[in-house]
Write a protein that binds this DNA or RNA. Structure first.
Lengths: 230, 230
DNA sequence: GAACCAATTATTGAATGCAATTGTTTATGA
DNA sequence: TCATAAACAATTGCATTCAATAATTGGTTC
């Protein structure tokens, strides 16, 4: 390995920088509401402004940043209400997916989901929150994918990515985390038994309690920030 | 027409060219599957490649075109199945919206919808398909907006735009067209009476029969094209 | 005449330079 | 001292230029 530079940077610079900035936003490195300076990012990522500005357009379409003409790009600040609205949409999309997935999921998909669930359970036992979180997201996406509706998969992936970082806080509480793992086991069991209507309700309940936990964590977090920087 | 130079072209060139190309795709001027030559569009719209390429990134995010590195942009070709999948998503999104809209719609919104409906009915009487079509789309968007969920409105608008041109063929049949107007009247009535569950079912039925008509029209159209250019 | 390969052309990707707009600072007067 | 305006600096928008990649043409050989 170690080709030319340290980073792989495969594909176009535009795609590279898009992923980089996206990660910076998701990880919280670029804080919501803050303005993004083109020059700074250009120097940091060692690319020109052209691909960066193309990335901005993409990320604006994804709803991660907001571009005002002649006034630069800012990371969108989502209120609790905004996130809750998105969650509601995600629940709705998964509801649509649930009944179709219960009917159309292939055996291979069920096996793959079982495998992902085992990995996720292991991540929970090992207390590796980030790994758990990613596997969790992947499982939900796979359930939606099992509905065999490309438009649904695309919209779900997009909306899910938009509020990803807000949901990360959901499993801070160990008790809630343990229950989430349990719920997942039952959800996959219901999918295996192909009980669509029940699956739909379980997913809804799962998301609602998950979001409830995340919201509480976020509110605490915001209070801390409010006290920390007056 | 042909007032390209006379146009105001307010806002950034990027926004301008994005709308131009979007219209070209929606109107069918740029045919699905065809490759888009940057130079040609640049000369036609009298702008440089930079804002055009930014527009490409936006339109790719909207799902209207596909960009392959070093191979240019092509208008996405959607199969009947793809469109049907999107319709299913749109129905799902409107289902989510219906119950909330029935509860949260303001009197002002109901008045505005009634006004739009009158305009639309007039367009039907005048046999102005394009005007009817736009008002129709606007009404459905307004119903979704009445649910007061910004994320839902955004996702619905995006997905609706993606397959707009495929639904245009829906009201070619005069009988179906007349029934669609009737259905709309009943739908708005149900919204006024705030019967969410019923509204949901009416919207679903409305879309399914509308899509059925559009699909038949599209299949005929495709057969004609197949015979026309062997 | 067909197939293969090299050279040329066309097209896309990215960097740079310039113009236009906005935000900031400083000077000036009330 | 505060408000206002003018000059300045910083930043963005866009056009142009250069580089890299893909497509095409022409020629040679079998």
């Amino acid at each position: 390995m170690n080709d030319q530079t340290v980073e792989p940077r495969r594909g176009t610079r535009s795609a590279f920088v898009t992923q980089q900035v996206r990660d910076m936003i998701t990880s919280g490195e670029l804080t919501p509401g803050s303005r993004i300076n083109e020059r700074v990012l250009v120097e940091r990522l060692d690319i020109s402004r052209t691909p960066l500005r193309e990335a901005f357009k993409i990320l604006e379409g994804e709803g991660l940043i907001s571009i005002r003409p002649n006034a630069g790009a800012t990371v969108v600040m989502l209120s609790t209400e905004d996130v809750e609205a998105s969650i509601e949409v995600l629940i709705g999309l998964e509801s649509i997916a649930a009944e179709h997935a219960a009917r159309r999921a292939t055996e291979a998909e069920l096996v793959e989901l079982a495998d992902l669930h085992n990995q996720m359970t292991q991540a929970w036992r090992d207390n590796v929150l980030m790994t758990y979180f990613h596997l969790n997201q992947e499982i939900h996406q796979k359930i939606v994918d099992a509905a065999k509706n490309p438009a649904l998969s695309r919209v779900y992936a997009s909306e899910s990515a938009r509020i990803r970082r807000f949901r990360f806080a959901g499993n801070r509480d160990p008790e809630r985390w343990a229950r989430a793992v349990e719920e997942h086991a039952r959800i996959l069991d219901t999918l295996r038994r192909r009980e669509g209507a029940l699956l739909r309700e379980m997913l809804r309940a799962h998301h609602l309690s998950g979001w409830g936990a995340a919201r509480r964590a976020l509110e605490l977090q915001q209070e801390d920030e409010g006290q920390g920087a007056p």
